Simulated assay, not measured.
Amino acid sequence: MKPYKIIKTLHLWLGLTVGAIVSFSGITGSLYVWQPEISAYLTNRELNIHNSSKTSYAKSVHTTIKLKEVHGDSIKKLQLPYRKSNYILLTFLNGTTYYYHPKNGAYLGSNLKTDSFFKTLLQLHRNLCIKPYGSYIMGISSLLFCFSILISGFLLWRRSYKKRWKKGFTITWSSSKKKFNYNLHKVAGIYFIIPLIIMSFSGAYFTFYKEYRTLFSVLPDFKIEDTSSLTKIKIGTYFSIEKHTKKLLPKYKLWSIHFPSKKDRDYRFRFINTLEIESGLRKTADIFTDKDLITTKINSFNTDPLSLRATAQMYPIHIGESFGFVHRFLVFICGLIPLALYITGIRFYLFKKR
């Protein structure tokens, strides 16, 4: 069989099979792009938060300290207001989730339907709610879409239009249904091929993050600063968290606290460079302490090797938070393109059969 026939057959059958999975992943991903705004609006209504003005970070930290003192060792995880949310989230060891006002610590509610909906949506997007195999289905489908369907589609497009490039980028609106369907398929594919490659490649990271880090480890492995002296600093009591972490990580803000449990014996204080939706690099840091809150280990973006700093950007690139609103809108559109390609691809196949 000639190479052209092989590429054409590969593009056809992978498109008809893998294309269905990628289309579903794209739709769920497009919905999740606007999760901060939709969730904030619905959560405020569900929790009856009438004053939706953002609470200051310092006040949120102060309230967090008080909540820890009240609930003691029954907490599994504590999270400060993040992105568009305006509540402090407490997950308890028994699995329940409570929400508190960041300004006064007032109890707002538990196990929100909005929160549950978006958690389910995210699970559908990442693993079809089929653990652990669903994650591999989605990850492998993303890589096949990236390196087989899109690349083979480009090679077929190039073979047809290598001597008439302009026609390869345009649609003839007055053509027959069959021709119009084909033109729509080729134009949607060629215009969005680069964003789709980036989206599918970054999406597979959530399944194969270990392999990605190994792959990126070929990048220069250097550190910006030495943190060996920082590990000797004590976090101290909860009243001094903010003071001590300013010394350790002056450009970061406390994001969440993971408490000791049967699985993890130590505390983990997670920090991020911004709690808002902002463009730029995603920078996180983790301070690990023992039960006496004495620092045992620090992991920071500033001191991570270049390979880890590169893979850390997979999330903001995939979700659309690296280059502002335009990036988010582009990710939203890209999530719908696989479905358009899938429908027009099936129609093209049926037209040809007829």
Rank of each mutant, 00 (worst) to 15 (best):
Y4V: 10
K5R: 11
L10W: 12
H11Y: 10
G19A: 05
I21M: 07
V22H: 11
T28W: 08
S30N: 08
E46W: 04
L47D: 05
L47T: 00
K54C: 00
T55H: 10
K68E: 01
V70I: 15
V70D: 09
K77S: 06
Y87C: 04
L89G: 04
T91V: 04
L93E: 05
Y98D: 00
P102W: 09
N111P: 11
D115E: 09
F117H: 06
I130Q: 11
G134H: 11
I140W: 07
I140R: 12
F147P: 01
L150Y: 00
S160R: 13
K166C: 09
K166E: 05
G168I: 07
G168M: 06
Y182W: 12
I190S: 01
P195L: 04
M199N: 03
S200T: 01
F201C: 05
Y209M: 04
S217K: 01
V218T: 15
P220D: 00
K223E: 12
I235P: 02
I235D: 00
F239G: 11
F239A: 13
F239P: 14
K253L: 10
L254I: 03
I257M: 11
F259M: 08
F259T: 09
R265K: 13
D266H: 15
D266Y: 07
F271V: 00
L275R: 14
K283G: 00
A285M: 02
A285T: 08
I287W: 00
F288E: 15
N302T: 07
N302K: 05
T303P: 10
S307T: 02
M314P: 04
H318D: 09
E321W: 15
F323T: 00
R328T: 08
F329W: 08
F332P: 02
I333G: 06
L336I: 03
L341Q: 07
R347C: 14
F348K: 12
